[in-house]
C-alpha cells in the first residue's frame, strides 16, 4: 500500500482552470503545508534556544557549529532521500562513512596529500554504493538485507584497517579547511559543501530525468518497467549516488575531526532515515523532497544543540528525537488526509 486509506474523491473536485501557472502561484504551490510546518518547528526551536540560552545560542560561533555538524549528516541524508524515494533503504551509510574516512586517512593515502584523501573518500564511498546497487538491482536482493550486509562488513573492514586506532590527519590543506581562516564570508567551507549538495540534489530530483525516474521507480516499479524505464539501472545509480554522498560526508568528517576512525558515522543510517521521514519522504517510496529532508536534519541538529547548551542528558535528547519522529509522522498523516 503506497497510500493511506482515504475516501474516494470525485474527478471534478479539484479541477482548476488550466491557464498558464503564474510565477507567484507556482511558488506558493511549491512551498506546501509540509514545508511550512517544518519551517515552523525550526522557528519554534530557534525561539526556545534563544529564550533558554539567550547569550550562547544565537552566538555566531554556535550557529556555525550547528551548521557544520549538520553538514556531515546532511550530505548523507540527501543521498538517503533519493534511495527512500525510489522505494529502497540504505542501512550502510554510517558504515560507508566510517570505511571511507579510515581508508582516506591511512598513512599511504595521506602521502598523496589533499587530493589523495578527497579522491579516496569519494571512490571508496562510490565503490560501496556500487556493490549495494549491483546486489540489489541485478542480484535481486532486498535493499534492507543487502545494505545490512554492507553495514556489517564495512564496519569490519574499517576496524581491520585502523586496528581500532584513530588515524590523525597530517595534511595541512585538509586541516586548514576546518579552521576559521578558511571561512568564506563567515561561512565554514563544510557548510558550503552541504549547501551545494543540497542544491544539486534538489535540481537532480526536480529538474532531471534521473529524478523523475527515481520517483517513478519508487511510486510504482512495475508501471515504470512497463513504461520502458530501465528500473534496474536506475536502482544501481541510486545506491551509487548514496555511496557518493557518504564519500563526500566522510571527507567532511575528516576535515571536521582532523582524523579518521572506524567508529565514525555511528548510527548515521538512523539519523538520515529519521530526517528524511520527518521531512515528509514516504518510506514506501514515490514521494519526498530534498527541502524536507534538509529541514529535518537542521531540526535534529538544533535540538541536539539546545539540549547540549542546557546541559541536558543525551538520554533525554534521544527520547525527544523519538517523540519528534512520531509527532512529525502523525502531523503529516493529518495534513495528508485533509488535503
Amino acid at each position: 500500500m503506497t497510500q493511506p486509506a482515504s475516501p474516494p474523491r470525485p474527478a471534478a473536485s479539484k479541477s482548476r482552470p488550466a491557464d498558464g501557472p503564474s510565477p507567484l502561484r507556482s511558488v506558493a504551490a511549491r512551498v506546501d503545508v509540509r514545508t511550512l510546518s517544518l519551517l515552523g518547528v525550526l522557528a519554534a526551536l530557534i525561539l526556545i534556544g534563544g529564550i533558554t540560552q539567550p547569550d550562547s545560542f544565537l552566538d555566531t560561533d554556535n550557529v556555525q557549529l550547528i551548521l557544520t555538524q549538520a553538514s556531515v549528516i546532511g550530505v548523507v541524508t540527501v543521498g538517503m532521500t533519493f534511495v527512500i524515494i525510489s522505494g529502497g533503504i540504505d542501512l550502510s551509510v554510517g558504515a560507508i562513512v566510517a570505511l571511507a574516512s579510515v581508508w582516506a586517512t591511512t598513512v599511504a593515502t595521506q602521502e598523496y596529500g589533499f587530493a589523495g584523501i578527497l579522491f579516496t573518500a569519494v571512490i571508496v564511498g562510490m565503490a560501496c554504493g556500487l556493490v549495494n546497487g549491483v546486489l540489489i538491482a541485478y542480484g535481486r536482493m532486498v535493499p534492507f538485507i543487502a545494505t545490512l550486509a554492507m553495514l556489517a562488513s564495512g564496519r569490519g573492514l574499517a576496524l581491520q584497517i585502523t586496528d581500532g586506532k584513530t588515524q590523525m590527519v597530517t595534511v595541512d590543506g585538509v586541516l586548514k579547511l576546518g579552521e576559521r581562516d578558511s571561512y568564506i564570508l563567515g561561512i565554514p567551507p563544510l557548510v558550503l559543501v552541504f549547501a551545494a549538495v543540497t542544491v544539486i540534489g534538489w535540481l537532480l530530483l526536480n529538474r532531471t530525468t534521473f529524478g523523475r525516474r527515481s520517483v517513478a521507480v519508487g511510486g510504482n516499479a512495475e508501471a515504470a518497467r512497463l513504461a520502458g524505464i530501465d528500473v534496474r539501472r536506475q536502482r544501481l545509480y541510486l545506491y551509487l549516488l548514496s555511496g557518493l554522498c557518504c564519500g563526500i560526508a566522510a571527507f567532511l568528517l575528516i576535515v571536521l575531526s582532523g582524523s579518521g576512525q572506524n567508529t565514525n558515522g555511528n548510527l548515521y543510517e538512523l539519523d538520515a532515515i529519521a530526517a528524511a521521514i520527518i521531512g515528509g519522504t514516504l518510506l514506501s517510496g514515490g514521494r519526498g523532497t530534498i527541502t524536507g529532508s534538509v529541514l529535518g536534519v537542521l531540526i535534529f541538529m538544533t535540538i541536539q544543540n539546545i539540549f547540549a547548551l542546557n546541559n541536558l542528558e543525551t538520554a533525554t535528547q534521544q527520547i525527544a528525537k523519538g517523540a519528534i519522529i512520531v509527532a512529525a509522522v502523525l502531523v503529516q498523516r493529518r495534513t495528508a488526509s485533509t488535503t
Binding site: Q3, R212, N220, A223, I229
Partner: peptide, 19 residues
C-alpha cells in the same frame, strides 16, 4: 498497479515514456 504513478500528476504520467 501496472501503468499509473498514482501520486504523480497527469503530465508526469503521460511523459514518463518520452522523457
Amino acid at each position: 498497479a501496472q501503468a499509473l504513478l498514482m501520486l504523480e500528476s497527469v503530465t508526469n504520467n503521460v511523459s514518463v515514456s518520452s522523457m
